[in-house]
C-alpha cells in the first residue's frame, strides 16, 4: 500500500515537473513567433498555423499510416540495436580482450556517416523496409554497445567482491550487481539511440522513396510548402517524445529512484 502511494506520489511529482517543460516550450514558441513576424509567412510560418496544419494532418487516417510507418521502422531498428548492441557490449565489458578488439572497429563504424551506409544499403537491399532498418541498426548499434560495455567495464568491483564473499553465484552477481550498474550508462545511450533511430529513419525516407514522414518532407520541399514541412517535423519530434516518455522514462525512474534521493532538493522521506 505504501509502495503504491509512494509510486503515485512520484508520478504526481513527475507530472508537476511538466510545468517547467511547458514553460520551455512556450519560450521556444515565443521566439518562433518573433521570427515569424520578422521574416513573414513564406520563410517561417507562425507556430499556431503550424500546429493547426499538424492537427489537420493527423486528422486523416492515411497520414497516421505514414507516421506509423516511420515510427515502426525506427522502433524495429532501435529494438534490434538495443538487443544486439546490448548483448555484444555485455560480452565486451566482461572480456577486456574483446573490448580491445572492438574499440578500433567501433571507431571505424562510427566514423562512416549514416548517409554512406544508406547508399550501400540501397544497393544491397533496394528501397525496402529492411534497407531502412539496416541503416538505423548500423548507426545505433555502436552507441548502445559503447554504453553497455562502458557500464560493465567501469562497474564497482568492490560490490562484486562483496556479493561474492556473501556467497552470490556468478549469475546472481551479474543480475544483482553488474546489471544494475550497467543501467546507469545504458539509459543515456538508449535515449540517444532512440533519437538517432527516428532521425536516421526520416533522413533515409527523404533521400529514398520508401514512404513515411521523410517522403512527406521531400514533397513539401518540392512544393516549397514550409508550413507542411514544419508540421511534419513537429509530428516526428512528438513521436520521439511520446516514445521516450511512455517507454524509457518510466523504467528509468523506477530503476534509478536512488538518484532522486541523492539530490539536495525536493521532497525527502
Amino acid at each position: 500500500m505504501t509502495g503504491l502511494l509512494d509510486r503515485l506520489g512520484r508520478s504526481a511529482r513527475f507530472l508537476w515537473g511538466g510545468w517547467s517543460g511547458l514553460a520551455a516550450l512556450a519560450l521556444f514558441a515565443a521566439l518562433w513567433q518573433a521570427g515569424h513576424e520578422a521574416y513573414g509567412d513564406f520563410i517561417l510560418p507562425a507556430p499556431l498555423a503550424t500546429l493547426r496544419t499538424a492537427l489537420n494532418i493527423l486528422g486523416s487516417p492515411e497520414n497516421w499510416a505514414i507516421f506509423i510507418a516511420t515510427m515502426r521502422r525506427a522502433l524495429i531498428g532501435f529494438a534490434l540495436s538495443a538487443l544486439i548492441g546490448g548483448f555484444a557490449g555485455l560480452i565486451a565489458g566482461y572480456s577486456p580482450a574483446t573490448m580491445r578488439l572492438a574499440r578500433p572497429l567501433l571507431t571505424v563504424i562510427l566514423g562512416v556517416p549514416p548517409i554512406a551506409w544508406l547508399v550501400l544499403a540501397l544497393i544491397w537491399f533496394g528501397a525496402t523496409d529492411g534497407m531502412v532498418i539496416v541503416t538505423i541498426f548500423v548507426g545505433v548499434v555502436p552507441l548502445v554497445f559503447a554504453g553497455t560495455a562502458e557500464g560493465i567495464a567501469t562497474r564497482d568491483r568492490g560490490l562484486d567482491a562483496m556479493a561474492e564473499v556473501f556467497g552470490a553465484t556468478r549469475l546472481r552477481r551479474f543480475w544483482s550487481v553488474g546489471f544494475r550498474q550497467m543501467l546507469a550508462h545504458l539509459f543515456p545511450a538508449l535515449l540517444l539511440g532512440l533519437a538517432s533511430s527516428i532521425k536516421v529513419a526520416v533522413m533515409i525516407e527523404v533521400l529514398s522513396s520508401v514512404g513515411g514522414i521523410g517522403n512527406e518532407l521531400a514533397k513539401a520541399r518540392q512544393y516549397m510548402d514550409v508550413t507542411q514541412a514544419l508540421a511534419w517535423i513537429g509530428i516526428a519530434v512528438a513521436g520521439l517524445i511520446a516514445v521516450e516518455y511512455a517507454l524509457v522514462h518510466p523504467v528509468r525512474a523506477e530503476v534509478e529512484r536512488w538518484r532522486e534521493a541523492a539530490r539536495p532538493w525536493g521532497i525527502k522521506r
Partner: peptide, 16 residues
C-alpha cells in the same frame, strides 16, 4: 559453516 565480511568501505549497493 558460513562466513561474512565487513570491508574498509561500507560497499553498499547505492540503488538499494
Amino acid at each position: 559453516a558460513r562466513h561474512s565480511m565487513v570491508f574498509q568501505e561500507p560497499r553498499l549497493m547505492p540503488w538499494a
